[in-house]
Every structure is written in C-alpha cells, then in structure tokens.
Design a protein around this nucleic acid. Structure first.
Length: 536
RNA sequence: GCGGGUGUGGUGUAGUUUGGUAACACAAAGCCCUGCCACGGCUUAGCCCCGGGUUCAAAUCCCGGCACCCGCACCA
C-alpha cells in the first residue's frame, strides 16, 4: 500500500471532485492543479480554521494585497537578486542549462560559446500597455504586508507587538515541478507577520504553551522531544515568540486532521537559511509517499524586510516606543566650529555641520569623514569639538523585527487526505473512507430516505433544507441501496448520515450514523441541526 | 534539466510482442425493486494523450510534443 498511496489518493481526489490536473483537455500543465467542488470546500475549511487560529485566536488582522508586484519592491526585498538559479545559455544553439551541470562545452552542440545568466524563479510580467513597467507575480504574500507597514502601524495605534495575516496565491516558476500537488508553480499560502520590538521576543501567552511537547530536529541533526519552555531555556529555540508559534502551528495542524505523531520541527542549517531569515524552523509532515515534507516555515526575519524597504524608499519604517519615564541620557556629540568651517568651506559649511552632528562619537576622533553631495571629505579635528551633553529622551525608535509562520495550504491539504485515508475490506471488496475531522469535511451530513417511497423522500428533503438553512452543508441522496449511499459518503469523509425510516413518520425521529464506527443513534428531527452543530 | 518507464470509458486494468470490428470490473444516469451498510433486475451513455509519418489498414510500428511515474540534479 505504501507505494500506491499517492496514486490512490490522487485517483480518489479526481474521481470524487477534490482535485483535477489543470488544463487537462489541453494536455495538462505541470505544476498546476484545480480544486474541484469538494476540494474547494475542504480547502476553504482549512483556510477558515487557520483564520480561527490567527485572526480570532491571536487577534491578528487579515489584509489582502495584489499578486502583481512592481520590480522595485522585490528588488528591495532581495528577491530579484537572491531568488535565482544560475544558468548558462549556448550562443550557437540557444539551449539553456544549469551552470553546475555544464563543463565549459554545450552538451548539445559542443560549442564553447556559452553565456552565463540567471534564471529567476519569479514569473515576470509587465504593468500597463505603454509604460511597460517590469513586475513579478509575488513569490510570497509577505511583501504586501511589509510595504503596508506604516498604515498598519497606525491602524494598531502604534502598539507592539501586533500581527497581520494574509491568505492568497504565491507563484514560483519551478524548474521542474514534480510530485503533483506537493510542488506547485501557483500555490496558496497563509502567512502571518508578527511585528516585535527587537530583542523583546518574549510572548505574553508563553505560559499557556510552555508545557507542550514538540519533536525538534536541530541544526546539528539532533532529534529530541522536548517541552517548548525547556527548548527556549536551553537556547535550542531562539525566543519565546518562536516557541509559541511552533506550538500554535502544531495545534493548527492537528486540528485540521494531521496526525500528531507525524509532525516534527526541523531547524534550518545556516547555509540553507533564506536570504531574509535569521532563524527558521520548518514544520515537516511525514508522508508515506514523500517522506518528511516542509509544510510550514516559521522564520525570524529580523528587521530585514522593513529595513530594506526603508532604505529603498526613504520612508520611515521605524516604530517608536515611549519609555515609562523619560530618561536623561548623557552623550557625547560633535559640536561643529562654524566660524572655522565657514572660513574654509564657504557654502558647504552648513551641510558639513549637519553631517558632523550625525556622527556617532567614538573615542577621541582626530578627524571625521563626511559625504557631501557624493564627495568624501575628511574634516580635521580642529573644525569641531567633542562635548558631553545631557538630553531627555522620552522613548526610542526602532525597526521592528518580524516572526513569520508561513503555511503551504496545498501541501497541508494533501497530507490531510493521506493521513485520513482508511482502507478496509468489506466482503472481499476494498472499502475506502476518509476519516476527516468533522469540521474539515466538505459535506457534513448525508440525508437519505431509507426507501424512496411512502413519503420518506419528502421528509428527508425537508431535513436537508433545514440543515442548509442553518448553514450546514448537507447532501440529499436517494439513489441505490442504503449501503451504497453510506459508502459514497464515507469515501468523501462525510461524518454523519441521517436516515429517514418508517419510524420517522410515527415519532419524528431519524437515525444518525457515524462514519468511523457505523454506529447509529436515534434523534428527534427538530434536534438534528443542533446535534450536528455541536459536533463540528 | 538529464536518463529510464508509462499514457486505453469517470476509476482500475486487458489488448500492443505478431498492425485488421477495442474488452472486463467497479463507478455513473434512468426505470423497477428495496425495512439500514457499495453484492437484485432491466436499460443507457462513455475510451485508445496530442500532432505528424509508414501502411490498403495503426491503440499496436516510427518521429516529435505534452503529461505522469522512477532515478539523478535542483529547490524551501
């Protein structure tokens, strides 16, 4: 079964409307998948559960920003330069290869005229018909949040820490997308960016989670099961905040139906850290088919992104923290001697003086180099004096640090199917059921008349209607034998089946059957919606 | 991107060696039957990945493309 589990799930997913290969009637396109009717319901359930955790549970706010991202934004963030593969192209025949695969000669035509180039993993596009501004489809949703930081900081009334989330599509033009839905060129991600004061990465709800045990695989390839609190104490996990989001991620994954015995957190080694990350833990999920696969990346991005955007635009991305008490600070500053500067530098004197004031005083300085209109100038010590002064500071400015849990929705989607796929024998036949958590199931209740006559269908249809009115996804079915209808619902993970029988006509009750045990209970029709709501 | 393999109803397969009316099971739709777990009866619809070539004739042979699978490489 191990080898075929993927095939079985993809086959089930296609047959029952969870997933379709995109553009299949045109031969298909590698790296793209469609979510079918049931798949879309399940995916929405995952995303809504994620919102329950991050928006409701954590008090973060969700925003929505464009997929198309101007060149300058991703240049500043480092993606234009860092998000690349090195390639070489043959001048003679035009073929391209990865640089490390080629030893000077073109493998196809033998030509030695090879041009080095870079293949960026981002999809390029253009904005506007005339101007043709260069742009990309975003490789992550995060940048949309970072560039809105000044608005968001204002929105949160300048209180730190705060979190902003986004669920949306990201795009990476993978060189060779294999593994179906595990490696897509267009994929859904749910990202949270939590802004902290630097070095204040404690977490106010750390107490709630510090006893929770996590499986950790550290940078040094040591695997251990450890309480979150201890991991922070021992310096294995860098901050309380990081540990908090590891636990939160673990809770989220198990609540959507990932088997808790098949989750571990693997720390990135230094050389594999993305260009923006200082510490990163991946939540990996074990797959019979693919082994351990990264599904959530939890990265400490430090001040990287805000700093980069501040540098590129000049917009102040700093936050301000007021001290409890204003502090008197003694500091040493340079005090320009204007009379000498004016005498010797004339018109430039004012600018030089401004630059001099910005210089950090470090010991006794004999001279200071300043940059005036692009010109480096060495200003001798005779032009300024160093004085000690006392100033009152009411607070400090800083560029916030960011911790980012980033969830790959499509991978989680697949692993939910894999972890909940159950196969048994029923009278010699293969019998399949999806043991999804009820809250994830695309359809919550099947509603059947035991036989399609004697007024039973009418009663059943009415129950279906009532459930739908209450916002419960229900599905009416009267075709085939009752066993067949149960089987159809089991295969798509429907947790409850409601059957109207002859007794229903007498006492207004129905049976409710449980997917995983096939046990039945009898419930009054009027109580059915509430009965189901309680169990979702 | 390289090497190997595969591509037949919705799904899973047979047929390809040796070119000649494409088969089976399950699933699906309709009607009947039916007092609770896919297993009754009748009926229906639906398939040779795409393009080119060889041939009287191609699912079958050849070439190209695409997709999927395995390995290598790559990627977070």
């Amino acid at each position: 079964m191990k080898e075929e589990i993927y095939e079985k799930i993809i086959s089930l997913a296609k047959r029952r409307g969870f997933l379709y290969p995109s553009y299949e009637i045109y031969g298909g396109e590698s790296g793209f998948y469609d979510y079918g009717p049931l798949g879309t319901l399940l995916k929405n359930n995952i995303e809504n559960k994620w919102r329950e955790f991050y928006v409701i549970g954590e008090g973060f706010f969700e925003i929505s920003t464009p997929v198309i991202t101007p060149y300058d934004v991703l240049k500043a963030s480092g993606h234009v330069d860092e998000f690349i593969d090195e390639i070489v192209t043959c001048k003679k025949c035009g073929a391209s290869f990865k640089k490390e695969d080629v030893a000077g000669k073109c493998p196809l035509c033998g030509s030695e005229e090879m041009v080095e180039g870079k293949l960026n993993l981002m999809f390029e596009t253009r904005i506007g018909a005339k101007k043709q501004e260069m742009a990309f489809l975003r490789p992550e949703t995060a940048q949309g949040i970072f560039v809105d930081f000044p608005f968001l900081y204002e929105f949160f009334r300048k209180k730190m820490p705060f979190g902003v989330v986004q669920i949306g599509k990201g795009f990476r033009n993978e060189v060779s997308p294999r593994q179906g839905i595990i490696r897509l060129r267009e994929f859904s991600m749910a990202e949270a960016e939590i802004f902290f004061e630097p070095d204040e990465k404690s977490h106010e709800r750390f107490e709630e989670i510090k006893k929770e045990k996590l499986t950790l695989l550290t940078m040094d390839d040591e695997e251990m099961v450890m309480e979150a609190g201890q991991a922070v104490e021992e310096g294995i996990v860098g901050s309380e905040a990081m540990a908090y989001y590891l636990v939160l991620t673990h809770r989220f994954l198990t609540s959507v139906g990932i088997d808790k015995g098949r989750i571990r957190f693997r720390q990135h080694k230094r050389e594999e850290l993305a260009h923006y990350a200082r510490e990163c833990w991946d939540a990996e999920i074990f797959s019979e088919r693919f082994g351990w696969v990264e599904c959530v990346g939890i990265a400490d991005r430090s001040a990287h992104d805000l700093e980069a955007h501040m540098k590129a635009t000049g917009v102040d991305m700093r936050a301000f923290k007021k001290y409890d008490e204003p502090r008197k600070v003694r500091r040493r500053i340079t005090k320009p001697k204007m009379n000498l500067l004016g005498r010797d530098f004339r018109k430039k004197a004012v600018k030089i003086a401004e630059e001099l004031k910005k210089v950090d005083v470090d010991g006794d300085m004999e001279n200071v180099t300043v940059n005036i209109d692009g010109e480096e100038m060495k200003i001798g010590g005779e032009y300024f004096e160093i004085v000690e002064e006392e100033v009152v500071e009411s607070g400090k400015k800083f560029i916030p640090h960011v911790i980012e849990p980033s969830h790959g929705i499509d991978r989680i989607f697949y692993f939910i199917l894999e972890h909940n796929y159950r196969e048994t024998e029923k009278e010699g036949e293969r019998y399949v059921l999806l043991s999804l958590p009820p809250s994830m199931a695309p359809i919550k209740a099947g509603v059947f008349p035991l036989v399609s006559k004697d007024g039973l269908p009418e009663i059943a249809r009415n129950i279906e209607r009532i459930l739908r009115k209450r916002g419960i996804m229900a599905f009416y079915d009267e075709s085939g034998s009752i066993g067949r209808r149960y089987a159809r619902m089991d295969e798509i993970g429907t947790p409850f089946c409601i059957t109207v029988d002859y007794q229903s006509k007498e006492d207004n009750t129905v049976t409710i059957r449980f997917r995983d045990t096939t046990e039945q209970v009898r419930v009054k029709i009027e109580e059915v919606p509430e009965w189901i709501e309680k169990r979702l």
